[in-house]
Nucleic acid binder design. Sequence first.
DNA 1: ATATCTTGACTTTCCCTGACCTTCATTTAT
DNA 2: ATAAATGAAGGTCAGGGAAAGTCAAGATAT
Lengths: 160, 160
Amino acid sequence: MANLSDIIEAFIKEMFDDIPGGILEIQRNEMANQFRCAPSQINYVLTTRFTLERGYFVESRRGGGGYIRIKKLKIREDEFLRDIIEYIGESISGSDAKAIIERLWEEAVITEREMRILCAAVNKYNLPLSPLDRNIIRARIMKAIITAIMDFEARKGGEL
Amino acid sequence: MANLSDIIEAFIKEMFDDIPGGILEIQRNEMANQFRCAPSQINYVLTTRFTLERGYFVESRRGGGGYIRIKKLKIREDEFLRDIIEYIGESISGSDAKAIIERLWEEAVITEREMRILCAAVNKYNLPLSPLDRNIIRARIMKAIITAIMDFEARKGGEL
DNA sequence: ATATCTTGACTTTCCCTGACCTTCATTTAT
DNA sequence: ATAAATGAAGGTCAGGGAAAGTCAAGATAT
């Protein structure tokens, strides 16, 4: 946890705990000031950490009385999993894969133990292939596992 | 006399003595500097010495504030699982894999849901490789997953 | 002779900033 | 009352820098 972006990310996520509605409003300059960084740093954090894939939606308004609004999205599980499969596509990097797996856990689609299993299964060091092939195989494995989870839940009534 | 790689390996292993959680974070360049070697030497040591078979799990991140994280897996307790890992070896067929996975379920090492996940992950159709390569990758994935399970169970109660 | 080690050049990923741009509300001038 | 000016937000983008990754080729050891 060395870099500023991680710290700001954690800070914002903590703010959500105090906001029951799941909608957060911040001021870019104020925040930049608080962390003694360039205002665009806030944009960087938002675009890299609070993306749609990670379950957030960001809106903003400029001018006097402007704001940045961050919304934590609610999901419908079946749709959610289909979207993830689509997002994965034919090939996926290790870091993208990790983000998805963590999201699955945050959304309580998988258990912590399953998260560890998944991470291990798609880890670079456990897939001794060329980077290109590795990303392809990783995509296959992830999609297969998510499909298996969907199928399992569909057959068996839904408790985790 | 021992070569550099051996020395670095021993050094890293000693670092674990001071880290009770079993998770170590290093900086590649700093370490290379310390040993007056090329940074890629560190990668060499990691890929040859800190492998899954030897009970380590490595993750990393690039860029400012980057790191290399080495996790010492807690795997020594379970003889049954160790035997299975040994049996898997460097390569395993689909049918052997399936048999092992079912056995794990019968022994209550994994849940039914995890059984499905595992089966999906090592299924032939999800590993579009030559039969030879597929068996090798399958072996890696299975060992990685079993190791992850052992580690997870061993850590339960302790902190991450 | 073979396997293992070591290096260096090049690549990729990620972080952070500063200069410049756009939008909006409010105030001021006509 | 309207139009222009002002100031206060937030947005964008390119670029520099800081890591770690890859690979092939040469060096060393067995």
